[in-house]
Structure formats: structure tokens, C-alpha cells
Design a binder for these strands. Structure first.
Length: 198
DNA sequence: GTACTGATATGCT
DNA sequence: GCATATCAGTACC
């Protein structure tokens, strides 16, 4: 399977969000398959950190070149991982909301539960990364990874030739976002157990 | 199974 | 001061 290169991210955000489903996120030997994403599109999107051209130290990376990781702290407690899309200056990104663990399960169990793989129940494995905060916890992604290149050697996304049935729906937990809250900018793999919400 | 609560960094008014 | 791109724990069906 081929590593996704810069040109994959240098495309319309909704297309990238849709096509990231089924792709494999790799970090330090751990691998998960992306099953749920959300698009956040720059200045016109009231759900986006960069709405109205808001530019802060926290969201600076979104304004940068595509194919980089935007990692931020939410509610002061959890991290969320995004892939920056489109050309430099556009402030668009795709939030990775959920994933299925594929490899490096013992490392992920330690990161998430502080337990070894043999002490973790099957139902807990499904819940290792079925949410944006959980995904970052399982893979050990913190603000140290903010701005990192997603086409590097330790941290990247791989292609996956398999085909999945995709469901499109509204985004989650952005009720404050006015007219933007109902945009159909969330995508997930149909009937997959690691999707955070139907 | 659903419902409510608390944790608390960052940026806004 | 107040709100938020969340999660885990508790209480109660």
C-alpha cells in the first residue's frame, strides 16, 4: 500500500474527507483504519476554528501547507487530530473522528487504559479509538505532533484499495455553529462498529 | 440502555 | 467571566 503524498491533501476538503475513509493512519508502528471524518472549511464555516479568518497560535497550522497534522486541545483535556487540506492560506482541515485498530494493539492499550493487551476485553478493543479524543489517546498524539508533516516516516497515512459504503451526515457537537451546523460534512463507513455515532 | 456531571486550556466578550 | 470540533464515571431505568 502506498503512502499518500502531498497531492492527495491538495484537493477540495470535502473530497479529501470522503476519501480518507478506509485509509490507514500509521504512527510509530501503530496502525488504525480511519472510519469516520468531518470537514472543517475555513472562514465561511461557523464550526471551524478559522471562521471569519480567525487566526491564533492554536490554529496557525491550518493556514499552512496541506498534508500536515493540526493537533489541538479540546475542553482543556483531550486532543483532536486533523489533516490540513487545500493550498497554503486556505485554513481547511479534516477532523479524524474514529478509527479501527489494526496493528500495535498492545501499545495502544497501554496508552488508553494503562493495561496490557491480554487484560483488555474485546469490547474495549473496539472502543480504543472510536472518537477523536480516544484516537489521539490511543496513538499517543499530543500537541508535540502539531504541525508535523503527514508524509514523513514515523507518522503518515497509507492508501487502502478496499471499497466501503459511505454514509454522509451532519457533524457532531457543533450546535452553536448556526447555519453551519447542518452542513452534511461528516462521513463514515456504513455499519462499522468503530464509528462514534450513527 | 439513556442522562447527567465534572474535568479544565484556549480564545472570545 | 463564558463557551467549546470530548470522555469517563455515576445514577437510574
Amino acid at each position: 500500500m502506498e503512502k499518500l503524498d502531498r497531492s492527495f491533501y491538495l484537493r477540495p476538503t470535502l473530497l479529501v474527507a470522503r476519501e480518507l475513509l478506509g485509509k490507514v493512519l500509521h504512527k510509530d508502528g501503530m496502525e488504525v483504519m480511519i472510519v469516520e471524518t468531518e470537514a472543517y472549511i475555513g472562514p465561511l464555516d461557523r464550526g471551524c476554528h478559522a471562521y471569519n479568518h480567525r487566526r491564533t497560535p492554536k490554529n496557525e497550522v491550518m493556514y499552512g501547507p496541506p498534508g500536515h497534522a493540526y493537533v489541538y486541545l479540546i475542553y482543556g483535556l483531550y486532543h483532536c487530530l486533523n489533516a490540513v487540506t487545500e493550498e497554503e492560506g486556505k485554513a481547511c482541515a479534516v477532523l479524524l473522528r474514529g478509527a479501527q485498530p489494526l496493528a500495535g494493539l498492545s501499545d495502544m492499550c497501554l496508552n488508553r487504559f494503562g493495561k496490557s493487551l491480554s487484560d483488555v476485553a474485546k469490547t474495549e478493543i473496539v472502543q480504543l479509538a472510536n472518537g477523536p479524543g480516544k484516537l489521539c489517546m490511543a496513538m499517543g498524539i499530543t500537541r508535540e505532533w502539531n504541525g508535523k508533516d503527514l508524509t514523513g516516516d514515523r507518522f503518515f497515512l497509507r492508501d487502502n484499495p478496499d471499497h466501503f459504503e459511505v454514509v454522509t451526515s451532519r457533524r457532531i457537537n457543533i450546535d452553536y455553529a448556526g447555519e453551519s451546523k447542518d452542513y452534511p460534512w461528516r462521513f463514515y463507513i456504513k455499519d462499522h462498529p468503530c464509528v462514534s455515532r450513527k
